[in-house]
Structure formats: structure tokens, C-alpha cells
Design a protein around this nucleic acid. Structure first.
Lengths: 240, 240
DNA sequence: TCGAAAGATTGCGCCAGCGCAAACTCCCGA
DNA sequence: TCGGGAGTTTGCGCTGGCGCAATCTTTCGA
């Protein structure tokens, strides 16, 4: 572990409003840990003995059913709290968090949480907000899966990813970590094959640009109108 | 409004652990309000100026897209906090809450929340837990919609409803408030027609018993195995 | 440098569930 | 007591997207 400098976190919402020595005190209980790409920060079902703040990198949070079906719950970006299972009174992590790229996180022991509630109510408010906005996102996803076609859902997913982890490049906006067709399928409740077909069709229209574990959005405007169902791209089915 | 007696709430998790005079103080800021069946407690998009505790009855929480598609987000039962939008830093309610039966709720002004955080951290923990378990449920729903057939999803939905608001009757377990096929469809992301067909098939098998806005589970065991995909009922399609 | 594995693409056939439409039943208010 | 309307059931035809399978491409470790 390394000593953590206050400047790394002072601007994050849960630290704003705390005095520098309070920030230091909070940080003293945390450890900074490096997670190479592909390594799990924690596994679904494991005892929730720590909670985390991602300092650098991106994580993929995934959940598997007893039957072995897997879904991508969300991606975590730098600055976000995650693994707050214990905070919601869960004894075990409900999902697995895997480093999508080399990442660094602060880890607090769960036992720090109770005292922290009393001493730093603003930190708790911040956790409540984190969980709250996660709830909003998840509910939005339910609405999408209820009411939208697969193509719209994929468009929404890409736009959300680009907003959360988009990097400007010449061709447009690139999603800043490796993401496979399979991952997108698991985010949108469809199959790898369908996603591949859709992206191929979009690439033909100049909406996106693909590659192995790589997606670049070239025309966010049209993707938006796709997502809202205002237009549709003909995904080739069968030559007549 | 009526004065609220401490005994009504003392056993609820957010009040346990508070001294009687603290309970009284909390209650003094709240008003008790009656909501006749069909009346909205708050509307999606309205300013989130209050948060609530349901004392009696059942609410249906529903969300509508800009395009007018509607989903049932969840049902609220007595003893639950709801309308905690402001708590997650939302200025407006993200959904509408409608009384499914005549109901009574305690309402606090949102302005009570900030002081309350400082003074009653256990109340905040409880809110965090409420939101947390709501997040778990919503994520479970996403998993279902990603990986399960419509029939399994309907089975899951009914089992959840029965657990949350089931009333033992001769024939089995009845869902304790009026619920239409349309409502079930909006909970499971399918259509009224499909739900109707499925319930008819189940009724033929003696799994459930129906009626206008009424569902009785007769064989929870088999519904479970349906929900887990271990068996399937033949929903009639077409006479050959 | 080469081979294998992981990821991606594409074709083909099928079917669960939706859209549309019509009819039926029950409850409730005038 | 008698509509009227809300909720429900059912038939029919179509199709979006899945399952399966084969092939192609890129990356990376030995």
C-alpha cells in the first residue's frame, strides 16, 4: 500500500466540505490498491468486508445467475464509490467487479463505516446519492427493456458509455476501455450476434466505427435519434 | 391532519433505537394524510417537497416515458419509506405514486431532511438500506428481463407480490390489493394480452385463480419451479 | 515467427410473443 | 333495473431477434 495524498480526492463530492485534517483522517483508514486488467476487485457472493473508491481506471461490474447467465450491471469510472454492499446492510457482494483496464482503488474496511456515519454525515449523504443515482439508472434500464427495441437499447447503452467514459478522437468519441460485443449484449439483454449485426449495419451508415473490443461513436446526433426511436437503420436480414 | 401516536411506528426499523422523546420529535414534524383509492400521492415530475412513510394501505409506483409508455416500478406496502427523491438529491419525483387501495401516509417536508441527517444517523442508515434494497430488486428485475422468458418473469412477479402483500385465503395466497392484467404486464415488460393468456393457461393447470383485478396463488411450489425455468406450462397457441 | 485462442461476422431457419381486432363479462352508477 | 364502460379473453398472422453453425480476423504468448 501507499500513503494517499489528500489532493487526489479533495475535489470529489464526498470529500468537499471536509476540513483537510478530516480528509486526512478518513484517508488514513484506507489503503490504495492496484488491480491489473482482468483482475477481480471482489467476487459476487464474497463477504463484503471492504468498500471502495476508484481512483484510476475502469471496472466492469457483472452479475451471474445461479443458472450461469451473466449480465453487465454497470461500469465504474474514476471518482466513484463502489462495493458499498455493507452500507446497504448486505453481508455479501451482490456482483463481481473486474478491472477493465489497469486500475487503482482506495479500500476501506467495512468496520470503518459505522463510526464514519456518526462523524461525517456528508459522506453518508454522498453514499445515499451514489446509490440513488444508481437506482435511477437501473430503473431507466428497466424502462428501456420494457418499452424499446433492441436497436434502441444498444444505442442508449453506447451513448451512456460515451458520456461516462468517452474520449474525443479524430473520428468522434471513443469508449475509453476495451469492450466486446459480448459485453454490450450483456448490458442490453440481447445476444452477441444481434449486437454484431447492429453495429455492422451502423458502421455501414457511418454512425460508428468498430474494431476488436473497440467502439467509436461517429455521429452521436443520429445515434440519439435512433435511441429515441425517431428513425431506424435497416439491419440486413436476408437478401430477397 | 391528525396527531400521530408513537406506537404506530415504534416497531419500524427507522424508529427502533430512538428514545421515545426522539420519536415524538420526529413525528411532530410529520403530518398524517389519507389517500383514497386511485388518488396520487405525488406525480412524476412534481417538485419533491416531501418524503413519506406509508402507515396503511398499498401504493402503485409508476413511471411514464416521454413517449407515453408506462411501467409499474413497484408496489409500496405499509411500513415503507417512499418518495425519498429529495434524499437522493433529486429536485423532482421520478415517478408517480397512486393509492391502490385507501391508504394513509406520514408526510415530512423535505426541509426536515438535512437537520435529521445530523441528529438521527440511524434514520439515514435506514433510508440508505431502503434505497439499497430497492436497488437490489431493480437489478434483479433487469437480470430477469435479460435472461428469462415472459412466463418466468410473470411467475417471479406474482411470487414477489405474494410475498410482499399476500393474504392467506382458503384457496391459497391472494394478492391483497386490486391488480389488473395490465398492471402485471407493466411490471414484467410484456403486454396485457400475453399476461392474460399465461394466467388462463395457469388457471387451467390449477396454479392460480383469477378474477377481475384479483389473483390468487394456489400452488406456490409449482410457480416457483416455473419461475426457475424447471418446467413450463403449455400456453395454447393454435389448434392444429 | 507461428499457432492457437479469443473475438467478430454472417447465413439460415424458426418461434415466442406482439399487434390488431373482436367479443365477452362483470361491476357500478343512474 | 338497465346500460355503459372497464377489464378480460381469445383468435390470427406476422416478425424481431434468437439459436445454431461455420468462417474469418486479430492478438498475443511461446
Amino acid at each position: 500500500m501507499a500513503a494517499v495524498d489528500r489532493s487526489l480526492v479533495a475535489k470529489l463530492p464526498m470529500f468537499v466540505g471536509l476540513a483537510p485534517d478530516e480528509q486526512d483522517e478518513l484517508l488514513r483508514e484506507a489503503r490504495s490498491v492496484r488491480y491489473p486488467k482482468g483482475i477481480a476487485v471482489f467476487d459476487q457472493g464474497a463477504e463484503a468486508d471492504r468498500f471502495f473508491l476508484l481512483l484510476h481506471g475502469h471496472l466492469r461490474v457483472e452479475k451471474t445467475t445461479p443458472q450461469g447467465q451473466q449480465s453487465v450491471v454497470r461500469y465504474v469510472s474514476a471518482g466513484e464509490l463502489f462495493g458499498v454492499a455493507q452500507v446497504m446492510n448486505l453481508a455479501h457482494y451482490p456482483a463481481t467487479a473486474v478491472a477493465a483496464v489497469d486500475s487503482i482503488a482506495l479500500a476501506w474496511p467495512s468496520s470503518s463505516w459505522q463510526p464514519l456515519i456518526i462523524k461525517y454525515p456528508s459522506f453518508v449523504s454522498s453514499a445515499l446519492q451514489t446509490v440513488g443515482s444508481r437506482l435511477q439508472d437501473t430503473q431507466a434500464r428497466v424502462m428501456e427493456m420494457s418499452n424499446e427495441q433492441v436497436e434502441q437499447r444498444v444505442a442508449h447503452a453506447l451513448l451512456r458509455l460515451a458520456k461516462q467514459a468517452g474520449k474525443k478522437v479524430d473520428a468522434g468519441v471513443e469508449i475509453d476501455f476495451p469492450i466486446s460485443r459480448q459485453d454490450v449484449a450483456e448490458m442490453t439483454g440481447t445476444t452477441l450476434h444481434t449486437v454484431s449485426r447492429i453495429l455492422s449495419a451502423w458502421e455501414g451508415e457511418g454512425l460508428v466505427e468498430g474494431g476488436r473490443q473497440r467502439i467509436v461513436l461517429r455521429d452521436a446526433r443520429r445515434l440519439h435519434s435512433l435511441a429515441e426511436g425517431e428513425e431506424a437503420i435497416q439491419v440486413r436480414k436476408r437478401s430477397p
